[in-house]
Design a protein around this nucleic acid. Structure first.
Lengths: 221, 221
DNA sequence: CTTAATATAGACCATTTAGTCCACAATTCA
DNA sequence: TGAATTGTGGACTAAATGGTCTATATTAAG
């Protein structure tokens, strides 16, 4: 009915002329971006993290980022791609941070304690309770989207390896298998805590879980 | 444009006459149902379990059940209600079965081993890999839907209590706290296994997790 | 200033969504 | 038989969905 695209002229032909090979500097040829990609991804990640893929509509994304559809799609191509970029961003921002914390110069037991305390502290402070994006994505998309599952697996692997290192710092006499088993157990407990805290399981139950897990590593020997 | 509802007459007035107080026998007054509620819920549960709430459309539900919209909505009122009913059905069919298995007359260690082996065996056989509906629902809906979270919490509690009983059968000298901590740890590991298996984490990693968890209970003393 | 290149805003669209409504079918009861 | 009651099928709808397209704005280079 109401068309408003008839005023201008001869555009598409002009557009298809050349495609200059500029080496993507931060200050490039045309009109500059009015947003920072990382900031947008942080906002979008938060939405997907909290609401899942199908639960997050373009409308939410546009509202949270303040971008218009045109800009969003020019920069990120599709909702699906935006989801994958969010997972990458999560790995860089949150997984790598957790790995770094697991490799800090605190005592190894303190590092494990902190690792398992994070879900509990988040549940205590209440606000949001997003859980863990990896866990949520695993439940949400990993079974139907190979790219998602690959990202998630890679991040889980990073965490598992970092945990193995910490355990090996405590249990100097354990075999590699024993160490890896304990580390994977800790990672499972972490995931379980993140999942159960989403449904509001009471704090004492979560704390018991953590205590049970740590008792394997902290006790005796 | 094309209206076809003009042939009949005087319906709504007739409908609003009386509302007989029949004590819901299985053979009631009007036209009988052409489906069994439990069968429909089993199908629908499977969809929500696999695809989540937003990921499951009415179209999927209609296709899977073979029902027409009218029948579906007359029986179940809304998609949301259908989801809650699916969770209830899951509790009755799957959670209670797991609890029963945990209370079987197998050796307590075998019962724990079986409990943690289920996620691994499901991952091994490949087909589907739905994970655990409680865990998925927790990630998917529990944070925004109180009714969902209540169902999920109740089911988790049942599992936790059953696990405590099994642990107490093994560790006769442990305190109640020790027992509960171990049980909650096992439940977290179970949840973690279910979640991680959704993203296709390799079987050996899952097995390591299980071994780590069981080593706390099986070893020494 | 002109031209090329890129970004923005938002109108627009095809499809899908959950949900409603009613003509009609099938049953029970009197 | 006929009234009352309940279930069925599916046409229909309003709103929302993800995605496209283009007029225009803004920059750099020549």
């Amino acid at each position: 009915m109401n068309l408003i695209y008839e005023i201008g002229t001869d555009w598409s032909t002009i557009m298809k002329t050349r495609k200059r090979e500029t080496k993507k500097k931060s200050q490039s040829v045309g009109r500059p971006r009015e947003f920072i990609e990382e900031d947008v991804l942080d906002n979008v990640m938060s939405l997907f993290w909290k609401q899942g893929y199908e639960g997050t509509g373009l409308s939410h994304i546009l509202a949270a980022t303040g971008l218009a559809k045109g800009s969003l799609y020019k920069a990120f191509q599709s909702k699906h791609n935006l989801y994958l970029k969010s997972l990458e961003r999560y790995e860089v921002v949150h997984v790598d941070a957790a790995v770094k914390a697991l490799r800090s110069n605190e005592s190894p037991i303190k590092r494990l304690d902190d690792f398992l305390s994070a879900p509990i502290n988040d549940a205590l402070t209440g606000r949001e309770n997003k859980g863990c994006f990896l866990c949520n994505a695993s439940a949400d998309r990993a079974d139907i989207d190979i790219e998602t599952s690959q990202h998630v697996k890679r991040s889980f692997k990073k965490l598992g390896q970092a945990l193995s290192l910490v355990v090996s710092d405590i249990k100097l006499d354990w075999t590699k298998d024993q160490i890896d088993q304990a580390a994977q157990m800790l990672l499972s407990v972490y995931s379980g805590l993140r999942i159960m805290s989403r449904s509001g399981v009471d704090i004492d139950t979560l704390k018991a879980s953590k205590a049970g897990a740590l008792s394997l590593i902290v006790n005796d020997t």
